[in-house]
Amino acid sequence: MVSSVILVPALLNGLMTGAVYALVALGLTLIYGVLHIINFAHGALLTAALFAAFFANKLLGIDPYVAALFLAPLFFGIGYALQRFVIGPAAHGEDRNILLVTLGLAVMIENALLYAFRADTRTINLSYAFDVVEIGNSFLAVPRVVAFGVVVAIAALLWFAMRWTDTGKAIRAVAKEKLGAELSGINVAHIYAVTFGLGTACLAVTACLLIPTYYINPHAGNAFVLIAFTIVVLGGMGSVAGAMLGGLFVGVVESFSGLYLGESLGQIGIFVMFILVLLFRPSGLFGERA
């Protein structure tokens, strides 16, 4: 019999982890919702962001939470440029090509990192990395609580931006009816790139939230992205609320299954869940763009 002494912290920890998953999923679902593409480079870009946050701290001594303030705009720019100048033009408007281009980018980025930094796993040391706060009778790591708060704030910010800013409205218009948006004078290529940039900026923030408690290596991002794919399929491709709720749900599921099944089985669990979700969601959801 497992008592609430274990269950409550497991639940809270699951929610904390889930929030980070949700942010990765948010970037993915945003891009899917507007561009209708699955970005296979999402994991590699997250890894790149982790390295950026790592070196900002190691070389320049910048605290990861401070680094987020300039890494987010930087990665927005990177994402914008990738979509505007690489993915968009290279794809010639065909879905199969987009698939291949984002895969090619993923292979490039991941292996460039491998080439530059070898397969070594690195961590950084921060004075507050092991600080805990007591909530009820659960002890929670401070960086995870911060992460949770930041993710919720970003989701709220994004939600408002989508509704109240001109760019947000343009993004929603393009997501809903691309041709109509184009006819009403919206620059679709620009909006696509902005969306891709926003999705990539989410990864920069994720990286800064993760780095205090997580290790990095050239494949570190991949684990998150498969989980993010699961969340996005679970929550509904393109749905921001779905990504948030799905992220929290998966975080909690993982936390409990880790409790009962142990680490390496837990890893397979994610993949199996992913496959099941893909296979058994009603097929109507999976109708690709013609």
Partner: peptide, 29 residues
């Protein structure tokens, strides 16, 4: 499994990738 579920395009790519990863993890333990 994939074709009966109507998976195509990106989803088919994703699910094949996931199957390969599951097999890799299983084989490594």
């Amino acid at each position: 499994l994939s074709f009966r579920s109507g998976l195509r395009g990106s989803y088919f790519a994703l699910v094949t990738l996931a199957f390969a990863e599951v097999l890799r993890i299983v084989a490594s333990v």
